[in-house]
Simulated scan of single mutants.
Amino acid sequence: MSATKMTQENSSTITELVLVGFSNYPQAETPLFFLFSLIYLVNLFGNTVIFILVVIDSCLQTPMYFFLCHLAFLNIFYTTAVVPKMLFNLLASKKVISYEFCLAQTYISLLMGAAECIILAIMALDRYVAICYPLRYLIIMNWSVCMQLAGGAWAISFFASVVPLYFTTVPICGPYIIDHIFCEVPVLLNMICDDTSLQETLMIIGASGTLLLPFLLIVLSYLCILVSVMSMHTAESRKKAYSTCSSHLTVVTIYYGTGMFMYMRPKSLYSAKGDKLISLFYAVINPALNPLIYSLRNKKVQGAVRRTLERWKAFHRQTTLP
């Protein structure tokens, strides 16, 4: 029997894999459990609050916050596919993950990561239109255009990442040990016994379409914004323009820097310890930072929080009156 056939037969009987996580540092697992639990709760709370505020506050029902809602949704969905299992394994004596759930994590992480890249690019385009064509902003970025852009972002992410992965999935071989915190494509490539040149090529092509091209669009948008800002006559106008872009630029820098390092490199540069830290940043920490960055530095969001609290207090007083 050939080695390939043996691999395929063995892979078809896989029920679970060992997910190493941080088991190499047993003394740190309990503190990490509480730390990551806190970060996950901050993520859930912050992104849920942003989602609710945009829905109920008319002042936030603009194109920018419409896309921010999509960002909040995928942050919640992405981390929920990754963090609960990671937290469970931090305390479990048997650190395993089912083969089906491992594949599900791979597909979800790829889809959500690609969607976030494209949505961040759309948000940069939105800022470009808002600053360079302020009088025509609501005409250009009308709700029909916003819906088409959002739908296109999810569709492109699905067909550029999930579909190629599905049709090029090949069996993995033992030992079935994943030295990572969750299942994602660069890690699983190291568990394939056959030649992975096709998968690596497709991963780089997919990353170019969902990482590099959106990044170039962001850079081009901000170059145009910079030129427009420099031509503004008052310091107040320049300050206002910078403030509308600073939060988005912070998120872009963090997310694209880590994502490009993880997905746009050859298999030979894989490093288990370094990749765990990189993945932690873009899959766990960054989704929790997003609502903090957008809310703490955004007066509109702060105002929406105050108005919502005031309405809630008024409603509470009315319901408690005899």
Rank of each mutant, 00 (worst) to 15 (best):
C59T: 14
I156K: 12
I76N: 08
M112T: 15
G152D: 03
V129N: 01
A92D: 15
S144F: 13
L90G: 04
L120F: 13
V55S: 11
Y176F: 09
F167I: 12
V162M: 11
M112W: 12
L138P: 00
Q105Y: 03
F101P: 01
F167R: 03
F101H: 11
H180W: 04
S58L: 03
Y107F: 14
Y65T: 06
S93G: 15
F77V: 10
A121N: 04
L125C: 13
L71C: 12
M112E: 13
C102G: 08
L165V: 14
I118K: 05
I172F: 02
P134K: 08
I122C: 10
E100N: 07
F77M: 07
Q61I: 00
A130K: 00
I177S: 07
P63K: 05
A124T: 02
I181K: 00
A104E: 02
L90R: 00
Y133R: 13
D57I: 01
A155W: 15
F158Y: 12
A130E: 10
L87G: 13
C59F: 08
P134R: 09
R136T: 07
Y137H: 14
I52D: 03
I56P: 02
L135F: 07
G151K: 05
F88N: 08
C173E: 13
G174I: 08
I156C: 13
L91N: 10
A124C: 07
I140T: 14
T80E: 09
S157A: 15
T80Y: 10
P134F: 12
F67M: 12
A121K: 07
